[in-house]
């Protein structure tokens, strides 16, 4: 066998072996660093109705993200993701104006989630909410 082909064979064999070892090491590393399921990612959230007064908003964690439930008029509840659709800041509720404001770039949302002004490209993401006795079932 010629020296150059022997060298090529060695380089190819060692490269293949190296790639195999790297692959075997990379898989556990990838799994180790991958986000862990936090549990309740498909579950519903139970909120006592008394926590959400008329014209008031209540912020809570929903499937790992901030969310808000609002009683815009007596007995009328709506829930949204609290993440602004512009650049991901968390909105706040302004009861005196009856609207949501994003403090980062002054995006404004109505009580039904629609964009009132500012840079947000789309409405807040709505989350189903239902009344069950004295509790609100979100999700």
């Amino acid at each position: 066998m010629e020296v150059s082909s022997r060298r090529k064979f060695l380089v190819l064999s060692l490269s293949t072996l190296g790639a195999l070892v790297a692959g075997v090491a990379a898989y556990p590393l990838f799994r180790y660093l991958s986000p862990q399921p936090t549990g309740g990612e498909k579950g519903r959230v139970n909120i006592p109705r008394a926590q959400v007064g008329a014209g008031q908003a209540h912020f809570f964690q929903f499937r790992g993200h901030p969310a808000v439930v609002l009683q815009s008029a007596p007995g009328v509840f709506a829930a949204f993701s609290a993440i602004c659709t512009h650049l991901g800041c968390i909105i706040r509720w302004l009861p005196e104006n009856g609207e949501f404001l994003c403090p980062c770039h002054a995006g404004r949302f109505a009580g039904d989630g629609k964009v009132l002004g500012g840079p947000p490209p789309k409405p807040l993401q709505a989350i189903p909410v239902a009344l069950s006795g004295d509790n609100l079932l979100v999700g």
Binding site: P28, L29, Y32, S34, Q36
Partner: peptide, 9 residues
């Protein structure tokens, strides 16, 4: 016990 391959590391 919980983190994938944590035991290995």
């Amino acid at each position: 016990n919980e983190v994938p391959f944590g035991w290995l590391i």
